[in-house]
Design a protein around this nucleic acid. Sequence first.
DNA 1: CGAATATGGCAACAATTAAAGATGTAGCAA
DNA 2: TTGCTACATCTTTAATTGTTGCCATATTCG
Lengths: 331, 331
Amino acid sequence: MATIKDVAKLAGVAISTASYALNNSDRISAATKQKVEAAAKTLNYKKNGFASDLKRTKTNTIALILSDLSGPFYSELIKGVQDVTSANNYDLIACNSIGGAQSTAVKFLTEKRVDGAIILAHNITDELTIESATYGTPLVLLDRYLDDNHVYHVEVDNIQGGYRATEYLITHGHTEIAYISGPAASNDNILRYQGYQNALMDYHLHLHSRWHIQGDFTREGGYRATKLLIAQKKLPHAIFYANDEMAVGGLHAFKENNIRIPEDLSIIGYDDIQLSEYVQPPLTTIKQPKYEVGALAAHLVFQILNGEKIDHHYKLSTELIERASVQPRKS
Amino acid sequence: MATIKDVAKLAGVAISTASYALNNSDRISAATKQKVEAAAKTLNYKKNGFASDLKRTKTNTIALILSDLSGPFYSELIKGVQDVTSANNYDLIACNSIGGAQSTAVKFLTEKRVDGAIILAHNITDELTIESATYGTPLVLLDRYLDDNHVYHVEVDNIQGGYRATEYLITHGHTEIAYISGPAASNDNILRYQGYQNALMDYHLHLHSRWHIQGDFTREGGYRATKLLIAQKKLPHAIFYANDEMAVGGLHAFKENNIRIPEDLSIIGYDDIQLSEYVQPPLTTIKQPKYEVGALAAHLVFQILNGEKIDHHYKLSTELIERASVQPRKS
DNA sequence: CGAATATGGCAACAATTAAAGATGTAGCAA
DNA sequence: TTGCTACATCTTTAATTGTTGCCATATTCG
């Protein structure tokens, strides 16, 4: 493989001259520049990215860290990140954090292989995150809060989203409203539940523990939780599923038990996944501004990279998508 | 940021000794090793990835190149790649090829930032692909054929898949079978159509050009193509959509025109996307072994990296998923 | 004293870049 | 006209980036 040395030799100039010429420095005469470029072409010279990055101590790439590349991650969010990154002429790579401290993500972070990162992966420990941030790599966290001077956050207002979903059910006349939760440890879940509680309180409704069923954000978990609810004999008026995947699972359970949605019971989800529009009935749900989250996160990375002083916290709000899984309660 | 120099100084040893110690060489005494490790810890030393890669001329990472990171790409396929890559203790990064020659993907390929790559991105030109391959980076192409000694291929047998789909319709009594195609330039599309033609021929059915409608692999395109077909007044007995996305679009069009599937007309798709199971009626379709494609592709990269001589071409076959969108024709 | 083991010195990897050097040209005085 | 300086332009030398690994050397022990 040809190096810049070979190019310089062929062009009959010094290595540095070749470097200047190839990098469009204006201290090189047009003639020399042409000679060098011709040489580079005939040798099929391509610069070695590492050597270049090493000297410049800058990679021009930022990482999007996902817990699992093959996961059902938000394509809208990625689009947001991608758009902003390429507008800034940076490269974007996606890597996974499977394997914790041994993962690709952590390696890229600690070994300074990227200039900045956006993290959507709860399996990267807090310490690791802080450690990476402290050493100068701008980090934007999307899925949790971390009190550190070098870490920035973009989040969707989950409390407000949970509140809105619950309020929507209440204003449709439902008073017995169940909540099928995500994993207890999930921050998203906790906040959505908080919103649910706040709404019940504000409308002077009671919080029954029987209406709080544990789920895990998976379709299967939603199915099981719903079966459990059905087995309790007395059904609620409506159910707020902490995410759409679980709601889809719930739909299966209801179908098996000949319970009609929304005639017998209203349900609302959270996320507005692609499927929501296609299930029967189409799912009313809370939509998160995913594109905006991604775009904002990427923007922040660049602002930090430019040394601008910015807030550490950004909160975006949700939107309610009305479809057909909720109907007013007939008394 | 601490470098190995600082570590060596603090530990009171030479740089090389520190390097050996940190890389678990057995030529270093346990005592020294410990000293070095302690120093590294107090200084919070993390090796610089580039410098290391530069010296070793090896990156230990392979790239999965996708035309668009935010696209609806095959999560099963990625899972296959991911599993094999991590089993080989390599890192995997995903990058996009938006922007052609200026894209991140091309940059990583030409600048030797990765040891190998799996490409699922038609917008990387053939020349570029060959160029990268020639200079020693193992390349596995998933979406097209390229006659080059350094390029390897894994493909799903699209002719067989197209044949199987068509044959299934024929054996259910349908004789007037339409084909709604993908983009004319798509290799996948061409081969599926080839399979369709072969099946018709083998069963002595005529190929009517009126039954060949142009689509583009998108939901919207499927919708439009189907409307066109409906507008022709005379409907076929069955339709073979070159992919599921278009079939979903078709379903919309039929619903709008009160044409019942599968009572009035049978349809079959291709891909078995997640949605297929959920649309009404659930879509009978051809499933591609995506996980296997990804896993095999990754395997090949490592075999090539190990200098093994392997075939340049691998073909996997499809599977027919029977659901409810095809029913026998009543004469 | 020779062998084995542990450690250190130094070049190499491929690029960038500051600073010094070379070359040529113009201006001006003798 | 000649000779010299000054300056601008272009090119080169050499240092630098962080790490690795070959080779040489120092130390220790039987």
